[in-house]
Amino acid sequence: MSYNNILEDINNEILTITINRPKKLNALNRETIQELHEAFKEAKSNEEVKVVIITGSGEKAFVAGADISEFADYSPKEGKSLAADGQKKLFDYVANFPKPVIAAVNGFALGGGLELAMAAHFRIASENAKMGLPEVSLGVIPGYGGTQRLPQLVGKGRAMEMIMTAGMIDANQALQYNLVNHVVEQEELLEFAENIAGKIMKNSMVAIGAAIKAINANYEDGKNGFETEINEFGRSFGTDDFKEGTAAFLNKRKAEFPGK
């Protein structure tokens, strides 16, 4: 599919989605959010895709925030609809995506950009990365899950400070805060993410999808994460991947998972 604001590349069963609005520092507008939704929706059913890496074009920014010019004159009702629509189409969709999603954060990840990175299953940052949720400096609050996901990742106190000061933290501080898993040199960022994706793909993608569901359940209101884990664990016994994985282990050979 052809897009105006994103690029796609599939290599070795890894889909790299690049947000490509460098003149706008890859800021998220409504069209880009819709295109990202379509790209992820297509990747969900594409058997050639096992892992998704999301990144930004250029050296300056992953995503420098939302495109403020689009909503500067919105009413309260329109603002609420903007947040609800964005969360449903992209941020919650990514967070609950059944295939692993890695955010390769290069440069600025601010506002909606950091919220997108936090929706991914984990994050790798380049040394020049800077992250923050500066929305209160505009008289608004994070609206794409930032007030929920940031405390889950860095703790309530640090999240309160980051959001209330509207300040940025650098890559090493983000690593200290557990906001990112790794910090690497910028030129190594995508290669490093691809290497991790390669390690992931050696395992059962069916089991990984079940694990994503179980882990996420612990952070959803009204859901018992332990119960979800038990159910997904039980379902695993009915998969071809389980039969292959156990047979390979017992026969001391490398598993060749069918993905079913």
Rank of each mutant, 00 (worst) to 15 (best):
Q148N: 14
A159I: 00
P151R: 06
R158E: 10
N128K: 14
L150R: 14
G157R: 14
G145A: 09
A125K: 03
R158A: 08
T165K: 08
Y144A: 06
G146N: 04
L153I: 13
Q152P: 03
G139A: 01
F122V: 06
V140F: 07
V140P: 14
I124H: 09
Q148G: 04
M162D: 01
Y144I: 07
G157H: 12
L150V: 03
P142I: 07
K130W: 13
T147E: 15
L153K: 15
I124T: 09
A166H: 14
N128G: 01
I141F: 14
A129L: 01
P151H: 04
T165C: 03
S137M: 09
R123Q: 12
S137W: 08
K156F: 01
I124Y: 02
T147S: 14
V136I: 15
E161G: 00
V136D: 10
K156S: 03
R123F: 08
I141H: 12
M162G: 00
G143Y: 06
V154P: 07
Y144P: 13
T165I: 00
K156H: 11
T165N: 01
G155K: 03
S126P: 13
L133S: 00
M168E: 12
M168Y: 06
R123I: 15
I124W: 04
M168L: 11
G146S: 02
L153T: 07
R158D: 08
L150N: 05
L153V: 10
I169E: 05
R123H: 10
M131H: 08
A125H: 04
N128M: 06
E161L: 10
A125P: 05
V136F: 11
G132K: 06
Q152M: 13
L150Y: 03
A129P: 10
A159N: 03
V140N: 05
E135I: 07
F122R: 08
N128R: 04
G167D: 15
M160W: 06
A159L: 03
G155N: 09
R149N: 02
M162F: 05
P151A: 08
K130L: 13
L138E: 13
M131D: 06
M164Q: 14
P134G: 04
G143C: 10
E127N: 14
G143T: 08
G139M: 07
Y144Q: 04
G157F: 10
N128W: 08
L153G: 00
G145C: 06
